[in-house]
């Protein structure tokens, strides 16, 4: 407890840095998964391939990805861009499947009637299919946000500034309180972002509440 009280500034700084790495990754994973999920949902033949490829991304251990990625995209190992890129890939591993599932779950009859009413492909996707897929998309995004925030800590092993540094520093110096504070901060941050996503979802999809209260 003494350590935590004496180092509140440090914890706050690490938390902010943590957020600055996680949020872009979460947003990018969501945005980039949309076209891929659309493709896999639209063209059934591609679905198994796309979903398996992205699902397997999740099996790549995160630590070496942080090392290998810079050699491919040409950034430094400790750059924020490297961490964000790696986390975006992990986010997409979950989000592409969620997006595909969400779009497939839209009733084909609704899609047909939208076409019959004269919607073109893109406007039908944006104004009809996307809102209807919204609740499932949100569920997927919530999993992505929680797992991303938790995964950022691994980059602490490389010395990137985030809450993961509290783990490595606490382990090396044998300060249990520091590691516990790090875990607590990660969980609280994940819960806070999750709550924020739920609120955004309620504001953007007021109709979804009626579905949940069946």
């Amino acid at each position: 407890m003494t350590w935590i009280l004496a180092n509140l500034d440090l914890i706050a700084a690490r938390t902010l840095a943590h957020l600055a790495l996680s949020l872009p990754a979460i947003v990018l994973a969501f945005v980039l998964s949309l076209p891929l999920g659309w493709f896999a949902a639209r063209y059934t033949w591609s679905r198994l391939g796309v979903l398996t490829a992205f699902g397997l991304l999740y099996a790549v251990p995160s630590l070496p990805l942080f090392i290998v990625l810079p050699t491919i995209i040409g950034v430094g190992v400790r750059d924020a861009a490297n961490v964000v890129a790696a986390l975006t890939l992990y986010g997409m591993a979950l989000m592409v499947r969620a997006t595909t599932d969400a779009l497939v779950s839209v009733d084909p009859a609704i899609r047909l009637s939208a076409t019959a009413m004269g919607y073109s492909g893109l406007s039908r996707f944006v104004t009809v299919e996307l809102p209807l897929a919204g609740p499932v998309l949100l569920a997927g995004l919530r999993v992505v946000s929680v797992s991303t925030i938790s995964l950022v800590t691994v980059s602490g092993l490389l010395g990137v500034n985030n809450l993961g540094l509290l783990f490595t520093d606490g382990f090396q110096r044998g300060i249990l309180a520091e590691v516990l504070a790090g875990i607590g901060a990660v969980v609280l941050l994940a819960l806070a972002v999750d709550g924020l996503l739920v609120l955004i979802g309620r504001a953007a999809m007021p109709w979804a509440r009626a579905v949940r209260a069946r």
Partner: peptide
């Protein structure tokens, strides 16, 4: 299980290792 997903594995390994 949502909270468990938020638990960073590196942190849990470290805490358990210290204890």
């Amino acid at each position: 299980s949502g909270a468990a997903r938020a638990l960073p594995s590196l942190g849990v390994v470290t805490v358990a290792g210290l204890i």
